[in-house]
């Protein structure tokens, strides 16, 4: 169980958090943004956000989860801004470059980061959180601030796209079917 503090954690505890969480946050960030320098900026920003709330934190264990949430939400906002930096995305995922071998020119290693970069941001996020960070549907939904149904539908779409992009070279998990929709015709985003 995470230790609970009756008062604000100290700066020394923040330093411990940074050193403990930094490597895993950095790896997650690399998968999310496909750029090492950007990933480093992203983790720094997420941890700075965490520190800005430090005086209100009573559970050091929860701070790590807060930092991960800050990482994902910051990455999402970066995606949105970057989408307007001349990178006008299209309505649909472009057809995969079928001439491009995801294993690269040597044919031995799959360039997964290049493949992930072709996914829409939210699909990329659910793939990374669920299959790299090993979060449950519920945990992923909580982190992204969406419903579990959205996570399931985004996961299903992401795996479908990965199947097209990766071919038979990777064993993909079976997506969890989304719950039946209970809406009465309203738009589902």
């Amino acid at each position: 169980m995470a230790p609970r503090a009756s008062r604000s954690p100290t700066d020394e505890q923040f330093a411990e958090l940074v050193h403990a969480a930094w490597p895993s946050l950095y790896r997650t960030a690399v998968l999310l943004v496909h750029d090492h320098a950007l990933a480093e900026d992203l983790v720094q920003t997420a941890l700075a956000r965490t520190y800005s709330r430090w005086s209100g934190i009573r559970d050091v264990g929860a701070a790590r989860a807060y930092a991960r949430r800050a990482l994902v939400t910051t990455a999402t906002s970066w995606f949105r801004r970057r989408s307007f930096r001349g990178e006008r995305p299209t309505a649909e995922l472009p057809e995969p470059d079928t001439d491009h071998d995801p294993r690269g020119p040597t044919g031995d290693r799959i360039d997964l980061m290049a493949v992930l970069a072709q996914l829409p941001p939210r699909q990329r996020a659910v793939v990374v959180l669920r299959y790299y960070d090993d979060l449950s549907v519920e945990e992923t939904a909580d982190l992204l601030g969406v419903s579990t149904g959205t996570v399931k539908s985004q996961t299903s779409a992401a795996l479908g796209n990965l199947r097209r992009l990766l071919g038979d070279g990777v064993e993909l998990p079976e997506p969890t079917p989304p719950h039946p929709s209970l809406t009465t015709g309203g738009h589902r985003g």
């Binding site: 930094w22 790896r27 690399v30 799959i110 997964l112 090993d134 998990p173």
Partner: peptide, 19 residues
Amino acid sequence: ERLADLLHRTVDDLPIPHP
């Protein structure tokens, strides 16, 4: 290869910059 394994192989051995 399993997707989870591939994700880990892609980044687990990356050099980590110092915070």
